[in-house]
């Protein structure tokens, strides 16, 4: 079989050691969690790091725990299966456990990690191809060429590859924050700000940084959430569209609603104006339809993944509508003050 490009392999035992290695090796190194994203890309020759640094032996990076006044702390090396099975996640934010379960297949969730999902590389039909295929065509902008072939006239100089991580989309809706550590110190940023929108360089993480914690703030306690995924098959596939919704029902009315759409752009897209539209209102069918139309408006997919553009856009509307209907149903069931 076609071997992987050669690299040196390291397994640091602590975050400090990993940060030291990254400070020394910089962009010559790639971090590996479960390998489900990096290894196929290396197999296709898309990445040829000189060093692969595994985080698997760093025990501190694993586990899901609730801390009063702080929130749900998720270690980035927690596997997606551990996330979907986590009693704390299921009790406090069941939609996050459910979103983890939507990823890939049982084997991919057994290997893949929460951090790996957040750092998932963007994908495009012009980029994620074998070396033989790539040899026959002009390189796209993500492969060092001049133009994005998926852009409408094929002349954009920016990469529009798609961000397809299910759990990440749900975590943005949950106002999650991430902590990034380098040899020089640590910083914590909103997960939403972690994504740049540039398909060629999708996260704001620097080559010398390790993602060390994902936190869903304690203020999110009691929020209702849902994540719905549209794909061709009910397993393995990346989302054609993924819709995450969080809101707080009070007295039969909606508060703090936030909708995030994945699988259509180079970043998880926060639906603008949706929170304001729904704030303090009773979520009936008419309002849900207006909100779903906002979601559709925010989705401007390009011809870079499965499904044509108009279809994907329409399915964002459809899945947004379903997510809102589910939330309305759950809010009524949660004893929001009005019988359903």
């Amino acid at each position: 079989m076609q071997p992987l490009p050669k690299f040196e392999y390291r397994e640091p035992g602590s975050v400090a050691e990993a940060a030291r290695l990254l400070a020394e090796l910089g962009s010559r190194a790639k971090l590996i969690g479960g390998g489900t994203d990096l290894v196929p890309s290396m197999r296709q020759g898309l990445y040829t790091p000189a060093y692969v640094i595994s985080l698997q032996r760093i025990a501190d990076l694993r586990g899901v725990a609730w801390e009063d006044g702080v929130g749900l702390r998720i270690g980035p090396m927690t596997t997606l299966r551990e996330m979907e099975a986590s009693a704390e996640a299921r009790a406090r934010f069941p939609f996050l456990a459910a979103a983890a379960r939507e990823v890939g297949s049982p084997q991919l969730r057994e290997m893949g990690t929460v951090g790996g999902n957040l750092c998932l590389d963007t994908r495009c039909r012009h980029f994620n191809q074998s070396e033989d295929w790539q040899d026959c065509v002009e390189a796209c902008v993500k492969r060092g060429g001049e133009f994005c072939k998926a852009s409408p006239n094929g002349r954009a100089r920016k990469c529009f590859a798609v961000f397809s991580a299910d759990l990440a989309t749900a975590l943005v809706a949950a106002n999650a924050r991430v902590t990034l550590q380098s040899a020089g110190g640590a910083r914590t940023i909103e997960l939403a700000d972690y994504y740049t929108g540039d398909g060629a360089s999708p996260t704001a993480g620097r080559p010398d940084e390790v993602l060390t914690e994902v936190l869903v703030p304690s203020a999110m306690q009691g929020v209702l959430g849902t994540y719905l995924k549209y794909r061709m098959r009910q397993a393995i596939d990346y989302p054609i569209a993924g819709v995450a919704l969080t809101l707080r029902p009070r007295d039969g009315r909606v508060h703090d609603a936030r909708m995030v759409v994945g699988g259509i752009s180079s970043r998880p897209v926060i639906v603008k104006g949706l929170g304001a539209l729904l704030e303090g209102k009773v979520l009936d069918e008419t309002l849900a339809e207006s909100a779903a139309k906002l979601a559709r408006k925010s989705a401007t997919p390009l011809a870079n993944t499965a499904g044509d553009r108009a279809h994907r856009k329409q399915m964002v509307y459809e899945f947004a509508r379903r997510a809102l209907a589910e939330a309305a149903h759950a809010a009524a069931g949660a004893g929001g003050g009005e019988a359903r």
């Binding site: 196929p40 595994s54 084997q107 057994e110």
Partner: peptide, 27 residues
């Protein structure tokens, strides 16, 4: 497939079903 899309290389590592094509032997 060598890309994690088919499951034909499933083995158990420490009792967990994983894809041998995406698992580094050194790991």
């Amino acid at each position: 497939c060598l890309l994690g899309s088919c499951g034909a290389c499933t083995v158990l590592v420490d009792d967990r079903p994983v894809l041998a094509c995406l698992t580094l032997a050194s790991a």
